[in-house]
């Protein structure tokens, strides 16, 4: 009798597992399957889960076609450089600040912590309106640096908060030893603390990179000309008033998604460790 119960329990577990796996996986498979077909097999009342004719034509079109000054290569590199720089900069400054926050005492520390926490949870749209108006006043609209800087300021509070949690768990013994050997605090930070924090750093670099990589809110407001389009905005241009080039949208989506998912798979553990670190008391 007990054995039967165990079998039922086990199979219930696997049914649940299968359902969960399908729910997670199907949209990604759907995305790939959409990207590998013609528009004629997308915009049809008889759309199938898998196409009848597999084709890479959407990917070729993505590279060939340009709308005005906008084209895929340009947008790809726009997105790549602004997000790479914003990830490096925001992660570095946050690491420096998070480390200082844990190792040193200063006036207003609690208020500072509260503000860091608050600036990561406040609705970004509230930040965007004055940011837009300030940048309009400075004649800095439609400028990729303005977009990059907006990503930096939305990434920094989250990263700093996570690093504060991370450094709270690290014992300073090795740092003390290096200081006795005559290393300056900044030297200790760069030669000892940063290399030891490498797993956390790489996870956070990726985490910051994707903030702008998939952003529509900030870029849609701050960018207007074709040569400054980022990838999310390029996707929007494929969505015309009368015709939506779904095949191209899906092809660009695949290019935007697959590398990120692969990197996430490698860095998942580090990312989870970093985030749970900030939740510990």
């Amino acid at each position: 009798m007990m054995k039967l119960f165990d079998i039922v329990k086990k199979s219930a577990l696997y049914v649940l597992l299968l359902v969960a796996a399908l729910v997670l996986l199907v949209p990604l498979v759907m995305l790939l399957s959409y990207a590998l077909r013609d528009n004629s097999e997308i915009i049809t009342v008889d759309a199938r889960f898998f196409p009848n004719n597999w084709t890479l034509s959407a990917f070729f079109n993505v590279f060939k076609r340009s709308v005005g000054e906008a084209n895929f290569i340009g947008s790809f590199f726009n997105s790549l450089w602004i997000n790479t720089l914003s990830a490096i900069f925001s992660t570095y400054v946050a690491a420096l600040g998070g480390y200082g926050f844990i190792r040193y005492n200063f006036a207003g520390k609690k208020l500072f912590f509260f503000f860091i926490f608050f600036s990561q949870v406040m609705p970004w749209i509230v930040l965007l309106i004055p940011y837009y108006s300030i940048m309009a006043g400075l004649k800095m609209l439609d400028n990729l640096f303005t977009v990059m800087f907006s990503y930096i300021i939305i990434c920094v509070p989250v990263n700093a908060w996570l690093f504060i949690g991370f450094f709270k768990e690290q014992t300073p013994s090795l740092e003390e030893a290096a200081k006795i050997d005559g290393c300056s605090p900044i030297g200790v930070f760069h030669r000892i603390v940063m290399p030891l924090a490498m797993p956390a750093l790489s996870a956070l670099l990726l985490f910051s990179f994707i903030v702008g990589w998939g952003d529509f809110l900030f870029s849609s407001v701050l960018v207007s000309s074709g040569r400054n389009l980022t990838l999310p905005l390029l996707l929007q241009t494929y969505k015309g008033m009368y015709f939506v080039d779904w095949a191209m949208i899906m092809a660009v989506s695949v290019i935007m998604t697959v590398p990120i998912v692969v990197l996430f798979l490698f860095l998942q553990k580090q990312l989870v460790n970093l985030m749970t670190g900030s939740l510990k008391e």
């Binding site: 597992l17 998939g214 952003d215 529509f216 999310p232 998912v261 998942q268």
Partner: peptide, 15 residues
């Protein structure tokens, strides 16, 4: 299943 969990998390919102 654990690995599959990263898919929605990593997929850009606009996608």
């Amino acid at each position: 299943l654990r690995s599959l969990l990263v898919i929605p998390w990593a997929m850009p919102g606009i996608v």
